[in-house]
Each structure stands twice: as structure tokens, then as C-alpha cells.
Nucleic acid binder design. Structure first.
Lengths: 297, 297
DNA sequence: TGAAAAGTTGTAAATTTACTACATTTGATG
DNA sequence: CATCAAATGTAGTAAATTTACAACTTTTCA
């Protein structure tokens, strides 16, 4: 009589169910995974199919499809279709799909773009705005800013250097861990050290964090919150990006880190105000000498 | 900007069904209007109700509800529910919105994530698959691979180094333009030089392209096709990413470049086959010694 | 006005769809 | 190899949706 009881279900399932399917993948049984594949391959078709047709497409029995739906915390097949429809409506049918052995250039290109976008979407939802604001605060007030990362995160630090360098702020970046250590030994309480690491378990970075804090610098980690590195930081900007794929290379996580750098840099310029932005333009104009002019300029 | 006419077509096709109901109102019969009212009053409930409960709520018969659905150009009640569910999901597709002066952390964070995703979407559509395939071909056959970029693109080249280094292929990366030049002077026809530049108008990179080609190396540009640099390359992987924003910093273009590197690296490993991927895993495992173990491992 | 026509609505039966209970298979373990 | 647990499928059942048709309204025009 009072169907109002169903209200909440719609809301707490705000998570993209396609994303949920990929993340849940390990917990599925063999047949359930077949269902998942068929749905991911063509979600638009799935929402217009009955449980029978979908079962046939996945070459499993109908109850298997039903169990699949239940495992994703939906009430059953029709409820699952509603969630799926909502996910598809959301503009992003982007899903973190793994590249397969037999994929051709078209497939892997598509998959990588889509996984990257899906990861950014996840990152966007997980990032903590107040912390960003706090970090921007610190950066604008810093006497000196250092960016350190190793391995795949080195290029992220490198990129941060490039961005913040334009701001006319003393900014430091080293690849060499000894230089990193020495740099941190000279820190003061007005300095900010930003350490980048996806896993947060790189020993030398953890040590650097300790050294920097020992000298009263503020240490910001772009890393996982509960990691050894995260625990050593004053502030942690964590990005809950799904684990990277089969390819044994950091891909999506690093893109999310870079985007975060963009965000910090943007926050920085906004905080510094208009006059400061003119300065930025000047830096850009200076580069012109080293370039071929654009036609018509 | 797309012409108005196109806009409307798209709009019509994907129109919010709730709006459609209100607009259609005049064409409904008395009973159908009762159904419309009930649905509009509480759409969240509607999508979780069966045709029977909804009919009861509107105090009409079940076929009336069904006719109501058909009148809105849906296949029937379940199909109508799907449309309704999609309308209720707050679908905001990603758009490249510029950060404004007065934006707070929440706004600029959101805008940057969304612009980045929007740019990736554009990049995905503009990238030329056959060229990717061709470049992967070249890379797998190369004796030596070099990645060079300057300024903001330096970190992209840096990242490429990090990726390809794991493949146990001779790979070269320098920040210093003199080193870059010298390296190119020693090129042979079996070498591939990848040059990265968003604008493609950086003088010294163009010169490097000329040097490399002079030594019969294959030059691949990740740059704009019609740029001075593009014209010097054997192959150009161009990314039609919308011009970067007001912030006077390369942001989205660089993310697209990095994603392209991911794609090349993935193509590379796929081409090299399974056995090769084990090698990658070994590289990853080697890193373990420099890390704190994960709990439970 | 009133009778045919067109349109609206509801009842009941038919059909499709989804779900449950149970049986069979698979695979792991001692 | 026997045994148990998990996974999957079969078949039957319940539920929901749709169709067909009849009853009832409203409209139209002689």
C-alpha cells in the first residue's frame, strides 16, 4: 500500500553500476562473469532485453542472470535494469575494462580512453574538497615548494614543477633521492613538501617525509591515506582510483594524480588573484621567442 | 557551435520524459491525465511500482496506464520505466567549462575533472587508429627508442621513458636539448624518435626532428599535424584537443598525450605477446624490495 | 434531438516475464 | 575415490504486462 518504503534504494545506489560490475569482477562466479561481459560489451542492448534473451546471449540460465543481479545488491532483474539505465543516462558509459590478449588497436585504444575517463570519474567523487582547499592555502603561503616522486610518480612531480615554476615561487624537484634528502634537510617550517606515490609504500619517500617533518616542514602526500607514507604526512590527498590493470603499469592512477596537480595549480592562481595571472601570461609570452610563429600572428 | 537545428534533434531524441509528460498534457485523456499527475507527483515511487500499483494509485485500470505509456512513444510500461529512470538520473555530460574568477574549491575541482574528461572524449574521437597501429609496429621493431619533449611536454616524455623502460628496450630520454641533439646525431635507420609538443612550434624540437631524419631514423610526432614539427615527422599522432583554458597552462592536452603514451605502451606489450608480459611482471616484482610490504602479504 | 460514429475505459483472458525450489553437475578436499 | 560444498541448470509457479473485447461516453450531423 505504501511503496514509499522503496525510496532510499534509488539514492544510495548513486554509484555507477557499470563501474560496480567491473570492480566486483573477482567476486563473480564463472557464469556470472559471462553475464557481466555481455552487459559491459553492450549495455544499451541489455536494458532492452528480457532476462531470457540476456541469458541466451550470455549462454547461461535465467536464474544465473538473476543471481548476478542480486550479487550487485539489486532486488532482481528489473531493478537491475533500472540501475543500469540510470548509469547509462549519466552521460558516462565509461567503464574500466581490461585490455585483452586478442584486442586490436581499435579495441585497446577505446578501452584505455574509457578506463582513464572512468578512473577520473571515480577520482572526482573520492577527492576531498576541504583538503584541497587546505593544501592550496599552504601552497600559497609556502616559502618554498618541493615536489618529489619516484618511478612513475617522478613524471608527475616533474609536471608539477613545470606548473608551479610559472608562478614565480621557489619550487624544487629532484629525481635523485640523495638530492631529495638533502633538500628536505634544509627545510624550514615555512616550506611545503609534496610527495607523490600511488601505493605510498616506497621506502625512501617515507624516509623523506620523516626528514621533512623533522625540520618542521609541512608534508602533503598525494597517495593512499592508510599507507606508510600517508601516515607520515600532515595532509593526505588520496585518490581512490581502482587498481591498475593487468598491464603491470601505473596508468590511470597517474592521470588522476596529474589532474590533481592541475587542480592545485588552478586553486593556487585563483587564490593569488588577477594581477598574478597577468604574470602567468607574461611567462607564456616569453616562450614565444623559442617558437615558430603561428601563421597570421 | 552546432547549428540550432541539430541541437533540437538531439534534444528531442533524448528528451527528458518528465518534460514530455507535461508538454503532452493536452493530448491525454482524462484517465491518462490522472496517471500523469501521480507520476509527476512522485516519479521516484513510480519507477519502483508495478503497473498494477501505479494503476491503483491513479485510480484507473491497468490498460490505461499501458496506453498512457504508449502515447509517450514507449514500447510499454517497462520501457516507460526505463525512460523515466534515465530522466531521474541527473545526467550531466561532461563539458569543457572554464574556471571562473570567483570559483571556490568545489567548483574548480569539478570543472577541471570534467574538462579533462571532456578533452579525453574529444581526443578519443580524433585519434587515428591506423596510425597508432603503425607507430606500435615501428616501436616494436626499433633498435632504440627516444622520447623528447620540452617544457610541459618534458614530463610526458619522462613518463614515456618510465613506461618503455620496463620493456627491456633501449630507451632514451633527455631534458637537455644539447643531449637531445647529440643523441639524434647518433641515430640509425633502425631507431625511432618520438617528439612530443602540443603546439608543434618549438624550434629546437623541429631541429631535432630534422637531425634525426637526416640520419634515417623514423620520427614520430605527438603533436598537431599541420605544425612545423608535424611536417618534419614521418608519422604524426595528432590529438585535436580543444585549446587549453584561460589558465595559461597546458592541462588537458598533456593528459591526452599521456593517455596516448599508455595506448602505445599497451599496444607494444600486446604485440610482444604473452611471454613478454611475464617479463613486465618481473620488473614490477623487483620493485618490491624498495617498498614496505602490504599488510598480509 | 437522437442515432451512428468515434473515442475512452474497464474486465478478463492470454502471454510474457521473472522468480523459487529443487536437481544435477562441477570441482575441490581429505 | 568418496564426499561435500559451491555453482549451475531445469521445471514449475507466481507475478506482471499486454491483448482482445465489451461497456460506456462523448461527439457529430441529419
Amino acid at each position: 500500500m505504501a511503496p514509499e518504503s522503496n525510496y532510499n534504494e534509488v539514492f544510495d545506489a548513486s554509484m555507477n553500476i557499470l563501474e560496480k560490475i567491473t570492480q566486483h569482477n573477482a567476486l563473480f562466479s564463472k557464469s556470472e562473469r559471462k553475464v557481466a561481459e555481455v552487459i559491459l560489451a553492450n549495455p544499451q542492448t541489455a536494458i532492452h532485453s528480457s532476462i531470457a534473451t540476456l541469458a541466451k546471449m550470455a549462454d547461461v540460465s535465467e536464474p544465473t542472470v538473476n543471481r548476478f543481479c542480486r550479487r550487485l545488491d539489486t532486488k532482481g532483474y528489473p531493478d537491475f535494469k533500472l540501475h543500469l539505465a540510470q548509469s547509462l543516462a549519466n552521460g558516462t558509459p565509461y567503464v574500466n575494462r581490461h585490455v585483452e590478449e586478442h584486442d586490436g588497436p581499435e579495441e585497446y585504444t577505446k578501452k584505455i580512453f574509457e578506463s582513464t575517463m572512468a578512473s577520473l570519474e571515480v577520482a572526482r567523487q573520492s577527492v576531498d574538497i576541504p583538503t584541497i582547499n587546505r593544501v592550496v592555502d599552504l601552497l600559497t603561503q609556502a616559502q618554498k615548494i618541493s615536489f618529489f616522486g619516484l618511478g612513475a610518480s617522478a613524471s608527475v612531480a616533474h609536471d608539477a614543477l613545470n606548473k608551479f615554476f610559472r608562478f614565480n615561487v621557489p619550487v624544487v624537484y629532484f629525481e635523485d633521492i640523495l638530492m631529495q634528502r638533502m633538500s628536505c634537510m634544509n627545510c624550514t617550517e615555512d616550506d611545503v613538501v609534496v610527495l607523490i606515490s600511488h601505493t605510498g609504500r616506497t621506502k625512501s619517500l617515507v624516509e623523506i617525509a620523516q626528514i621533512a617533518r623533522g625540520n618542521d616542514a609541512t608534508v602533503v602526500g598525494i597517495t593512499s591515506r592508510d599507507s606508510p607514507l600517508g601516515k607520515e604526512c600532515n595532509l593526505v590527498l588520496s585518490l581512490d582510483v581502482p587498481e591498475d590493470t593487468d598491464m603491470y603499469m601505473p596508468m590511470a592512477s597517474r592521470i588522476a594524480q596529474l589532474t590533481l596537480i592541475d587542480i592545485l595549480a588552478t586553486g593556487f592562481t585563483l587564490r593569488r588573484g588577477n594581477k598574478f595571472r597577468e604574470n602567468l601570461k607574461r611567462v607564456k609570452d616569453t616562450l614565444r621567442g623559442s617558437r615558430f610563429d603561428k601563421k597570421g600572428e
